[in-house]
């Protein structure tokens, strides 16, 4: 049963990659790098999808371009830079860390710290109580309830 599920999953694998058979490089190592890079590049007409999972014409062209660069001897970063030089940083699905993306990268950690400080202050204040002794009336009431 488990083997059958695994076999089905393996057969379904190409369903979430749009790479067509005629695009695949002969060298499996280069092809694996090309697919990895393909998942990091945004399809310029579908925006939410990577070029690896899009069947749009320009996504196919970009997949072929990435493969062409890798065959020409580019490193992964050089191949990404090549595409960024033509389409801008918006094509990267993982934005680069830099001055212009500082808010984007640091905001979650910043908010966590801010929230943590707020929560800690509130909890400490609550734990401390009012710091005032009971009045005579209040003491009487406590006695009565006992």
């Amino acid at each position: 049963m488990r083997a059958a599920i695994l076999a089905l999953l393996l057969m379904a694998a190409p369903a979430w990659a749009a790479t067509e058979p005629d695009e695949v490089l002969a060298d499996p190592a280069l092809e694996a790098r090309a697919r990895q890079l393909g998942t990091e590049l945004r399809c310029v007409v579908c925006a939410g999808e990577s070029i690896e999972s899009s069947s749009a014409g320009v996504a196919r062209d970009l997949r072929l371009l990435v493969r062409e660069r890798l065959v020409a001897g580019d490193t992964d970063d050089e191949a990404l830079d090549y595409v960024v030089a033509r389409y801008g940083e918006g094509v990267l699905l993982r934005p680069r860390f830099g001055g212009h993306t500082l808010a984007l990268w640091l905001m979650p950690a910043g908010l966590l710290v801010l929230g943590g400080v707020g929560a800690a202050t509130a909890l400490r204040r609550r734990g401390r109580g009012t710091g005032r002794a009971l009045s005579a009336e209040e003491a009487e009431e406590v006695e009565r309830l006992r």
Partner: peptide
Amino acid sequence: GRQVLELGLSG
């Protein structure tokens, strides 16, 4: 081919 990718063509 893919010459126009040099221009940043999206369609």
